[in-house]
Amino acid sequence: MKKLLNSLALLFVLVAANLAFAEVAVIVHPSLGVDSLTEDDVSRLFLGKAKSFPGGAQAVPINQNEGSASRDKFNEAVCKKNASQYKAYWSQLVFTGKGTPPKDGGDDAAVKSLIAANPNMIGYVDSSVVDASVKVVYKIP
């Protein structure tokens, strides 16, 4: 029993540490003429309510694949929806022809290389993978 409690405690610490330290960064191509976005700006782009960056450049939001930790954190913090609410939200738009959800671009590394290669894309990755190939415009603590 004590052993179980210990492992539970360890698990809790690990999960908590994971949640506490996994900072997610919203990234764009370095050439984009926008240096920072508000949470509202980002949320509007990812929920299909806006299609361009402030300033007018076309924006193509890119999700991470379902099940990724960054995706769950991003959806909860910015879109204010858990995985199933997020799915239900988009199914309301998809099946009415009123919108298409952001494409899934893979994991942290894959999304970073997509953004680095596409001036119109916006994505999010774990801050640990951020480098000079992309520009951070918003951070989820």
């Binding site: 239900a88 099946f95 009415t96």
Partner: peptide, 28 residues
């Protein structure tokens, strides 16, 4: 335009709040 679209053909009549996805039970 960026925010406006024109559709032509057979459409769902927007009678109710859930009309558009009436058949997509998953969404409600």
């Amino acid at each position: 335009s960026d925010n406006g679209k024109v559709r032509a053909g057979r459409l769902r009549t927007p009678l109710y709040m859930y009309s558009d996805y009436l058949d997509v039970g998953y969404s409600y």
